[in-house]
């Protein structure tokens, strides 16, 4: 009872803040927490019932972890997990490095007009769908008409069947991912850098600090919390992959599967024939749980190092 009273008092004391969070909280409940019931499908053998979805859910049989088996009882389980994690690690850290580097670079340019043009240019890839991008990549890598093979033959080098040669693809995929994402990721860092109080730099300049020293001792430390938090959040998505990148850009070429098969690809290719809702849901649940665990661990470690950098 006392606990209840205290809680009431606390709630009242925080009423202003609760009002602040109320609109988005209602949104979260309606659009995120209510639909989470759907995860139950992963543990059921989903059958349709004439009284609608909830009746279907209710009447479907529990099957425990049976729907998860296909993710583990396959001889490529290791391969797809490895590919997904390795690509994501590269995407996260290279993406972080490039986004920060470009943001700092742009903030340093003297000509602000040019800066704007560059920035706008870098954002363009974000607008093109992977389908359109795959057309474009094909014009470079096509075996008989591709620009690169034409160039190679000009130098007397034999043409390469790009879509049959797995060794090149880790690089191509990383390049494409960076190409598409860096302009977008950079925006956050740019905004953060622009928001840094100018007086820090003025003080540093008076002390005779070089540009490089200013970056190292002012810019980077100031945006480190942001870098940390974005990275922690990205780690939560480490079991997901950008399906369009791996499916469209590679033209879903089977010869490349050793290096392009990720969890999402496997689930897509494996379940189109079966059309099994429950197995799809199981894959999603698995990805979420692993991501969740990783984030909790990362956050715990970060918190040990410096409380300020932690997410929660």
């Amino acid at each position: 009872m006392k606990w209840f009273k205290n809680t009431l008092r606390d709630l009242y004391a925080n009423r202003i803040w609760l009002m602040f969070v109320l609109p988005a909280t209602i949104w979260f409940i309606i659009f995120s927490y209510l639909p989470m019931i759907g995860h139950v499908i992963a543990f059921k053998d989903f059958r349709i019932h004439r009284d609608g979805f909830f009746a279907s859910l209710w009447h479907s049989e529990w099957v425990g972890f049976k729907n998860f088996e296909f993710l583990f009882k396959t001889n490529v389980a290791w391969e797809i997990t490895r590919n997904t994690i390795l690509y994501n690690l590269v995407f996260i850290f290279l993406g972080l490095f490039l986004a920060v580097a470009f943001a700092i670079g742009l903030s340093l340019l003297a000509n602000k007009k040019l800066t704007k043009i560059y920035q706008t240019g870098m954002l363009f890839p974000h607008f093109l769908s992977w389908v359109v991008v795959s057309y474009f990549v094909m014009t470079f890598l096509s075996t008989d008409r591709g620009a690169i093979n034409s160039l190679l033959s000009f130098f007397g080098v034999e043409a390469i069947s790009w879509y049959y040669e797995p060794i090149y693809w880790p690089f191509i995929l990383v390049f494409m991912a960076m190409w598409k994402g860096v302009g977008y990721q950079m925006i956050v860092y740019l905004a953060a850098i622009v928001g840094i109080d100018r007086s820090y730099y003025e003080a540093a300049m008076i002390d005779g600090a070089s540009k490089w020293q200013q970056i190292r001792h002012i810019t980077i430390p100031m945006i480190t919390p942001l870098m940390m938090i974005l990275t922690i959040m990205n780690i939560g998505r480490i079991f997901y992959s950008d399906f369009g990148l791996f499916y469209q850009v590679t033209q879903n070429s089977g010869a490349l599967y050793d290096v392009t098969n990720t969890i999402d690809m496997y689930v897509y290719n494996g379940l189109t024939t079966l059309g099994d809702m429950s197995m799809t849901a199981a894959a999603g649940f698995y990805q979420s749980v692993v991501g969740f665990a990783l984030v909790i661990i990362t956050n715990y470690v970060v918190k040990k190092v410096d409380e300020d950098y932690a997410l929660f």
């Binding site: 296909f70 009882k73 396959t74 001889n75 494996g270 379940l271 189109t272 024939t273 099994d276």
Partner: peptide, 10 residues
């Protein structure tokens, strides 16, 4: 045999 079919489809 769904698990097997998913693998075979791949």
């Amino acid at each position: 045999v769904r698990t097997e079919i998913a693998a075979i489809s791949n």
